[in-house]
């Protein structure tokens, strides 16, 4: 049977006042409770019945103090209620981690960004999640709690499959920590879409490079929408590290990035095009970062 729903399914709405209370609800209701931050992923999914068996919505927005975006010299901390819009407009983010602001701005629409959160974006864990590639290159760490205890998960280990993460149903992400990147590093997120707004990435490429006297001290490349999860491509990164920049090596890096991903064909693009674009955009990102004076002027690591 095919039905096109306009209404949400029935559920109860719970608004805990503290993390502890939220955790208790999650453990009480096992898999039938769903956490929401902005709800911009969960609500459409519920409406389209793409998510089933949810009897309880646990809204974190009743808990105060979770929308922080703070910088303490060692790194940036994002609370689970920090919205995409707030990150995009935050002075400290713009100054210190401009790549994050850039990725944030590339998402959806002002309305969705006003609701959606960075944490929700990674927890939702679609391969095209726009915040993921930048966070991957920044070696972000995700703080997780449950009634059983807390743990910190490196973002590289966070995603386990399309819309799947290491989180179990009774866990909550309490924040993302983003350490200062290497001094003199600069980064960029390129999102490939047919339109300029309200579009999902056909390919997303985040690159962070640390040049020093013509030598590549560090290179990190993360890709979105071209594998079951957002990924880093270590093999590609290693080609340039410690070597002098050259067009030839950059091409090799781009080639290795293209080989390092596992794209699929769907209604948005073919696997072949996606792979080609990883090659093109990886090369483009590195070249632009190297030539971009402005990037170094406002680059990373200022606070380091």
């Amino acid at each position: 049977m095919v039905t096109f729903y306009r209404r949400l399914p029935k559920f109860d709405y719970l608004a805990p006042q503290s993390i502890e209370e939220a955790l208790a609800l999650l453990s009480r209701y096992q898999g039938s409770a769903k956490v929401i931050a902005g709800g911009s992923d969960v609500v459409p999914k519920l409406k389209r019945r793409a998510m089933k068996g949810i009897d309880y919505i646990v809204d974190l927005k009743g808990i105060s103090g979770l929308d922080y975006i703070s910088y303490d010299g060692a790194g940036l901390k994002l609370g689970p209620l920090a919205t995409v819009r707030a990150v995009e407009r935050s002075d400290v983010v713009l100054e210190t981690f401009p790549m994050l602001a850039q990725a944030a701005e590339s998402m959806a629409s002002p309305q969705v960004r006003n609701r959606g959160t960075v944490v929700g974006n990674i927890c939702n864990a679609v391969p095209s999640a726009d915040m993921a590639p930048s966070l991957l290159t920044l070696d972000a760490k995700v703080s997780v709690v449950s009634e059983k205890g807390s743990r910190t998960v490196a973002i590289q280990d966070f995603f386990t499959g399309p819309t799947k993460t290491v989180l179990s149903a009774d866990e909550i992400v309490t924040g993302i920590e983003i350490p200062n990147p290497p001094a003199n590093s600069r980064g960029k997120y390129i999102k490939l879409t047919p339109r300029r707004a309200m579009d999902l990435a056909v390919v997303g490429v985040a690159v962070m490079v640390t040049p020093e006297n013509g030598i590549c001290k560090d290179l990190r490349i993360a890709l979105g929408a071209v594998s079951p999860t957002p990924i880093r491509v270590a093999q590609a990164e290693s080609i340039l590290k410690g070597n002098k920049f050259s067009d030839e090596l950059i091409d090799q890096v781009a080639e290795a990035a293209a080989e390092g991903c596992r794209p699929i064909s769907d209604h948005r693009a073919s696997a072949e095009y996606r792979r080609d674009m990883v090659r093109v955009l990886t090369r483009r990102a590195i070249r632009e970062l190297l030539s971009d004076e402005a990037a170094s002027a406002q680059g990373f690591g200022k606070g380091a």
Partner: peptide, 9 residues
């Protein structure tokens, strides 16, 4: 999102 009509930008 997937049937792509032009947006303001």
């Amino acid at each position: 999102v997937d049937y792509k009509m032009p947006h303001s930008v």
